[in-house]
Design a protein around this nucleic acid. Structure first.
Lengths: 211, 211
DNA sequence: TCGTGTGAACGAATTCACAGCG
DNA sequence: CGCTGTGAATTCGTTCACACGA
């Protein structure tokens, strides 16, 4: 089943369902209802059913969904049935935190290249990798067929880095730099902006209870 | 002007406008049109006008918005006209990256407490702070009147940590742990889930061009 | 009977389009 | 005339409610 258009938020919920399914499988539960999934994930049963129905009918009426089969299907849907090669640009503290973060590898994302332009960082050994000069990025991205780039540079470097990544053939970028990147429409871009997150907290605290 | 209900995404756009206004003020531009703001921020002029109109009429017809005045107003609206006291729980790599990240301090967020339960980390000096035992969190949060908590712990510790923060009087939480936190409705919660971000990239790459 | 799958109803957010003011 | 401010129209996402199959 090839769904027409799935909303960004629906896709994010699929990731959540997958976590819940992992947990259920771990404790040996064999079926779950949309209500179960909704309860743990913090959404409504109707939404769970609607989200899943975009991709097919995986449940049995009166019963629920078979946990392990649904888990496999959602894994497949999210594109996690394979491993992805990721390049990390920016070998600062945040870059290091992401590199050594187990969550990525666990879900099928292998960071196979780390790049920086700081001579103090180039050549450093990170796990089984060595931090490479950003000058070699084009070559390495092509050679190792890196598909996704994670940008963890200062704001000013982010756009040039993105351009280089795209020129080297990367198809998706996760940008942590606090800048709006301009990328061609065929490139998938997601932004994580830490300042915006805390500012939205400040807004909420400022405007709640009529202050 | 007290707006009825502003969508989460509108608030996030306000943060973006603020960045653009900063940039414009820096180069000495005195007025901007909604088109200018939209262009840089990547949205439509109508949306910019609608977003701003929720809080008042700051523009002059035929002219645009006065940069520095609008900047002040947006700063005020977002609750950035003051400084916020933040506590960071989890002194791992990601915690360190956030702690030493200048973006927070620049926008008015001061990390005034860092906590961990690892005896190897407790007592470490981080800048002008010392990593404190999580046991002292309640006391320190009250004493220093910490208002926001940032959770950068493993998934399993996140919920107990959140409970402690809330018991100590924190009103808003930014959660980086890959878990759904349960918090009472009066607590503002935002989640940043790195796994979900890369998974949404994988989904996009898997489903584009009909693959 | 129970819980899925889904059209239909609803609500929220974005875009349109234009009146009105500088 | 140019650009804001805003109701109206539209699009998009969520929730409802119920027919249907296990």
């Amino acid at each position: 089943m090839r769904p027409a258009k799935i909303s960004e938020s629906a896709v994010r919920r699929l990731s959540l369902y997958l976590r819940v399914l992992d947990a259920f499988e771990l404790v040996g539960k064999t079926t779950v209802s949309s209500g179960d999934l909704a309860e743990v994930g913090g959404m409504t049963p109707a939404q769970v059913r609607k989200d899943l129905s975009h991709f097919g009918s995986f449940g049995k009426r009166g019963l629920g969904y078979p946990v392990s089969e649904l888990r496999e299907r959602v894994t497949e849907i999210l594109g996690l049935g394979r491993r992805w090669r990721v390049g990390l640009v920016g070998a600062g503290k945040l870059g290091a935190a992401l590199f050594f973060y187990d969550g990525f590898r666990g879900q099928g994302f292998d960071v196979v290249g780390v790049f920086d332009n700081d001579t103090g960082k180039i050549g450093q050994r990170w796990g089984r990798l060595v931090v490479e000069d950003i000058e070699s990025m084009d070559r390495v991205v092509r050679a190792t067929r890196i598909e996704m780039g994670i940008i963890v540079t200062p704001a000013l470097s982010a756009q040039p880095v993105a351009d280089l990544l795209i020129a080297a053939g990367v198809e998706a970028i996760l940008n942590f730099a606090p800048t709006r990147l301009r990328v061609p429409p065929e490139i998938t871009l997601r932004n994580v902006n830490l300042e915006i997150e805390v500012e939205s907290l400040a807004f909420a605290l400022t405007h709640e209870n009529g202050v």
